[in-house]
Design a protein around this nucleic acid. Structure first.
Lengths: 204, 204, 204, 204
DNA sequence: GGATAACCGAGACGGTACGTCCGGTCTTACC
DNA sequence: GGTAAGACCGGACGTACCGTCTCGGTTATCC
């Protein structure tokens, strides 16, 4: 696990790294991202500011690492989305899990912070894409391609649009707090995305 | 136009107000929202800082007003979404217009700034909801309800979900710059949202 | 007295200015010049750092002003050196006063600080020359010229050298703590400087 | 030469020591004492910071050693001041040599640095006194005592005052750059110190 | 038409945080 | 055990803005 980090970081203090990530998570929950400061993180972590600037370019980057570390802890990392043979069932399962995650205050605040910082900071966006969003996006596409192969998803569907259709509404409602995040909402979104908004032929 | 502002603002300097909004728009395009500062706006507008703080609570609020003023200028304000009788056609029209708007650099930066600031600032979010998003959301719902009445949209569809399905993907691609905003993309999204992701029965 | 400051400083807070000068004097005595910091002065004075940087270029400049302010307080400022008609008597008087001043802990530390900072900082040196040393030097020269006129000082004496001869030893012993500063020492220096080091002709 | 250092320093790297002293001299001339840093010296010398802190307590101490090393190089070290039998002649000779030394940019900056650091740092002052100033002071006193013995200097003269009278003005003019350092100035000072400021009896 | 009060520009003020430099200590790997 | 390298905690630097607060100098109503 530690060995994963490259040789150039051989002398890096694992203690300080953990303290910084923990402090960042704690503080962002306590005071919000806007009032989160590198100075504050350093103080809370009992660390010199330089130790943060040496390894991260911004408070957003610290937070991204903190979030990644959070995932690594609850290991057995899902390397793949579930595939029971039925797309709708699986998507509901996944979205319900996402609902739970976004309702987890440990994740909610830092994730919200990242979501609003990424469009402002191209460097952070690139890292986020590479380390977090990209891989996840690929998993989603794999699952959708499997569905295409067995005729559960239109063959000519644009997968990026499809992903947006499925995961977008949840994310949007969460980010703008425009409604409660419930398992039922997850189900509704999946059904609507798959079936479309038109009245279903032969219904009623 | 000026008369629209309440009596309490009778003594307010229209010159300063315009200068501030213009300066805000100019600066946010030049330096980005993060480096935009009340101090900078005041300097650029040739105005005292207090004149800004007297009328707006934050730089975000200034920008919101600036954006609203921008809309008021290009008058003939569409008080309603087009209704040709065919929902798909109308939605494509509207989304193509949105595509053009979001490609307009005059609007792009301030809009992006607001989009990332709103989830961080409840007060700004409330104002945004009341002055800009709420009314627009209502127009969209009206158009969708009309479609429901003539059987072009499922009667049991959750309109909030529907709106997210239709307008979400465009907004998301724009905000994260995850692909080009083209008229064709607008069309694809409308079709996908209406028809759903499942293979259409009897197709092929 | 306050009116002496130029119009450009009309809005300057006299309260803050006094607090800063007082804090600087207190701190330099407590912790020494090396550990004196602008940050520390600001904190002690209950003032923002910018308020110091707005009006002074360095901690040395603050200290110089503090010292000048100290002199202004004990008014009745001697605009001229005493002239009783006898040079030796007057010089002893003046040097004994200097001895007392340099033994005053209120003056000792800041003066010592300035003395070591001036050779390092040309800007500070210029200000010091203009505001403090220059005028004093002029007074000394006036007194010595008077002595020349009545034959108590060699007509061809270089006044700069003369001043160094008279005031230098005291200053040197003080700066390097190479011996106690006593009235007797002052007298010895005056006698030696006036009579020279050679054996006096006809003595003994 | 190397053997002069005590046994405890047996393992000390002479290469590093030289590199540090050279780097210190170079840097103090380039950037001035204030901006001279242990970090900078280490980097320039290609040496670890610890190697400096192991052997010297401060940047001032390094500089003092560097200066001492400089003297040791131009060997044939004058263990005694010249004594031709005429004090005035000898003093002029010595002061003219000092003038030349102080005009040497290789010596000027580090010496100036030391001169301003010593009154701030008692430890450095002690070392300076022991290693450099003390011995020199003793040489001066020896020469002056010899002069007293043959009636060229007043028998009751305080030698410390005498030294200050003779060497002080030069040092002061140099430190405060209050005038050019010339051989003529050296001569004037010697004459004035010996003869005193009073008009000479029987002149004219 | 003279008082008066809100608005305005300017910018000083007490603060917070920035991102950097360096101090002095400690650790690692080499020789 | 000395050394090069450099991470570490900490303190201060000088700067940028925050949001509040005078300060005079216009307006622009209202008596």
């Amino acid at each position: 696990m530690t060995a994963r980090r490259p040789a150039s970081e051989a002398r890096r203090s694992e203690t300080s790294r953990r303290a910084i990530l923990d402090a960042a998570l704690d503080l962002v929950s306590e005071v919000g991202y806007t009032k989160l400061s590198v100075e504050g993180i350093a103080a809370r972590a009992g660390v010199g500011k330089q130790t943060i600037y040496r390894w991260w370019p911004s408070k957003g980057a610290v937070l991204l690492d903190a979030l990644l570390a959070l995932n690594e802890n609850q290991d057995g990392e899902v390397a793949v989305l579930p595939d029971s043979g039925d797309l709708a069932t699986d998507l509901k399962l996944v979205l319900r899990a996402t609902v739970e995650e976004l309702n987890d205050s440990r994740i909610d605040e830092p994730m919200r912070a990242l979501s609003t910082e990424i469009p402002r900071d191209p460097d952070l966006a690139a890292t986020y894409e590479e380390r977090l969003n990209g891989p996840i996006q690929e998993l989603k596409k794999q699952r959708l391609r499997a569905a295409q192969r067995i005729g559960q998803l239109a063959e000519d569907a644009d997968l990026d649009v499809a992903i947006e259709m499925i995961w977008g509404p949840l994310r949007s409602r969460w980010l703008h707090r425009s409604g409660p995040l419930t398992p039922e909402y997850a189900d509704t979104v999946v059904e609507t995305a798959l079936n479309g908004l038109r009245p279903r032929r032969g219904e009623g």
